[in-house]
Write a protein that binds this DNA or RNA. Structure first.
Ligand SMILES: [Zn+2]
Ligand SMILES: [Zn+2]
Ligand SMILES: [Zn+2]
Ligand SMILES: [Zn+2]
Lengths: 169, 169
DNA sequence: AACGTAACGTTATAGTATAACATTTTCACT
DNA sequence: AGTGAAAATGTTATACTATAACGTTACGTT
């Protein structure tokens, strides 16, 4: 039902329809638990975000929202930003600050920090779940700093893109 | 001459003029080493950034640049963005992605990742120097991911603001 | 001085996000 | 079913962040 980090196959060829289905099931469960309403718009936005393992920008979501609702007027930015705010609050998506983009959370419902491996070549992002680094905790304690949230964005090359590079260069 | 992390006093009351002077001395040294030109504009921008330990936005820099050069026309955004690009390339400043803002590097000239403790109350940011977390290295290795850069932004309360909060509430 | 390059000025525009207010939908309660 | 409060969405305008493109100036070399 929920999506666990050990299942994260962002960098691996896989049947992605399972990712989408699992994410929607988990989202319904989370919203039910929180007494939050998982409306059609919010479900559409989450589905669009989960269409891939690549972070997607708010305006790109807007375009796909229009495509998913043919015949309707193109929604305005606040529509998608409000849905994004909701999904972020429910812990269903994360924001990748270095890309101004959003990506589905692979283990919603459990409190955790935002930690990603992001490929600069194909822009696929893989969330990973690790506790707070000991050195960070040590630094914070030394500086008398109370940690509220942690954001870790690691950029580099995923297996596929690294292989492609070594073949060409 | 250079500014070492163990000297970082962002959260501590201190004679900040030393920070500014040290940063300028270090910047001249780094640029000399790299054969890069530390022009008046670039020095002004770096000085403005180092006016505090709080990240500052590009447009705020623009305003202060105008104030620092009375009588001149207000510079346009590309002017400050170009200076910022230069300073980022030379490793003299860092970008805080979660704030769209820039802050002086406390140990320029040495290769390192961007790691900050950021107070949500006073927005003071303290750079800290820690190696890559072992768990991150492990995760990356497990995912066959080649790390290029790491960005770690920790938000919370600095000592002063934590004290103020506990007194009031 | 003449040249080539790097830096900076200038104008316009792209890309990201939110404020403010109107309208519709939903839900609890009668 | 009818009513009203609250939540969600629609709509318009605008703020904030960043860059493209091109012209001009300043600098170092010959
Ligand atoms: Zn998938
Ligand atoms: Zn997550
Ligand atoms: Zn200081
Ligand atoms: Zn630094």
């Amino acid at each position: 039902m929920s999506v666990h980090s050990e299942d994260n196959q962002a960098f691996i060829d896989h049947d992605h329809s399972h990712c989408i289905e699992d994410a929607l099931v988990a989202a319904r469960a989370v919203c039910a638990t929180n007494g939050a309403r998982f409306t059609r718009l919010r479900e559409q936005v989450l589905t669009i975000i989960w269409a891939s393992h690549q972070p997607i920008g708010a305006y790109a979501i807007l375009e796909l929202l229009l495509a998913a609702n043919p015949g309707q007027r193109k929604p305005a930015p606040p529509t998608v930003y409000r849905a994004l705010d909701f999904l972020l609050q429910q812990g269903l998506v994360h924001r990748i600050n270095s890309l101004n983009a959003y990506i589905g959370c692979t283990h919603p419902g459990s409190a955790h920090h935002s930690q990603f491996l992001i490929c600069t070549e194909c822009s696929t992002a893989r969330e990973f779940d690790a506790g707070l680094p000991a050195q960070l905790v040590h630094e914070a304690a030394g500086a008398d700093f109370q940690i509220a949230s942690v954001l870790l964005e690691v950029t580099g090359l995923c297996p596929q893109c690294a292989t492609g590079r070594s073949q060409h260069g």
